[in-house]
Design a binder for these strands. Structure first.
Lengths: 130, 130
DNA sequence: GACAAAAGATACTAATATGGTATCATTAAA
DNA sequence: TTTAATGATACCATATTAGTATCTTTTGTC
């Protein structure tokens, strides 16, 4: 089980790098700095700029930079972009089969764990990471 | 991301069912009770008895029952059986690429979250779930 | 002893998610 | 006009999880 996937991990590294530079940086530069495959990095950067996390500049001399302060870029946001909704589990039995959905102890326990994870994740942003 | 997979989920349900019954129960009975596909359930039960969580009885009139008290069957154990080692992430960059493994803030944060998850998971056993 | 009903062992297939590549179009500075 | 960048999009590869199929072994019952 992975809390954080490669996508997210690479995205975070790229964002940290950009946060430190505070200038327009090209994909090839990020690739060199981080050692991530070029086309994969590009895909990640594209996604981040679609999501307005990054601002992109096309054409020669173009590249990417952060679209908002590092303090306002939260880990949870990045995880949601690359991993979808971050939930620890769902109930695998259909409602009509599982007779005690409301009373299911496991469900409640997992939810409690989930809450504590969220709480901790919410406090992480790019500024914290650099 | 799933903390608990289907395998584990079904295993837990089967174990809870067995804990409540306290007698030898056949795979077909569990299938009826839980609505899980027969061959899949059997595979899970086989695994649980290989791991000495269940005791099995072959031949006509055979089946499965718990091999130890419900209080001693921990969720973590079941998760490890079906999901391998339960870790929230690894560092995706190789050590020689990632220059600041020791100082990596993300790594530390994830570890802290992991610890709190473990702490909560360790308190869950079959007795708690029924 | 034959039969039936159970689990044991094992190999295979299917679905899904993740990771990664390739290609062509568009933009804009030099 | 060329070149170096991103945008869009379609595709392929791999690993994990989910699920099936089949044959063997055991054991109670008639």
């Amino acid at each position: 089980m992975k809390l954080i996937t490669r996508n997210t991990d690479y995205a975070l590294r790229a964002l940290c790098h950009l946060a430190k530079q505070d200038k327009v940086v090209t994909a090839p530069e990020l690739v060199r700095a981080l050692g991530v495959p070029h086309p994969f990095m590009r895909k990640i950067l594209q996604r981040l700029s679609q999501e307005k996390i990054l601002k992109s500049y096309k054409g020669q001399g173009g590249g990417f930079k952060l679209n908002k302060p590092a303090e306002e870029i939260y880990l949870m946001r990045i995880m949601r972009i690359f991993q979808g909704n971050v939930g620890l589990n769902g109930c695998f039995l259909k409602k009509d089969i599982c007779p005690n959905k409301g009373r299911c102890v496991l469900r409640k326990k997992i939810h409690a764990i989930e809450d504590s994870v969220y709480k901790q994740l919410r406090e992480i942003n790019i500024a914290v990471l650099i």
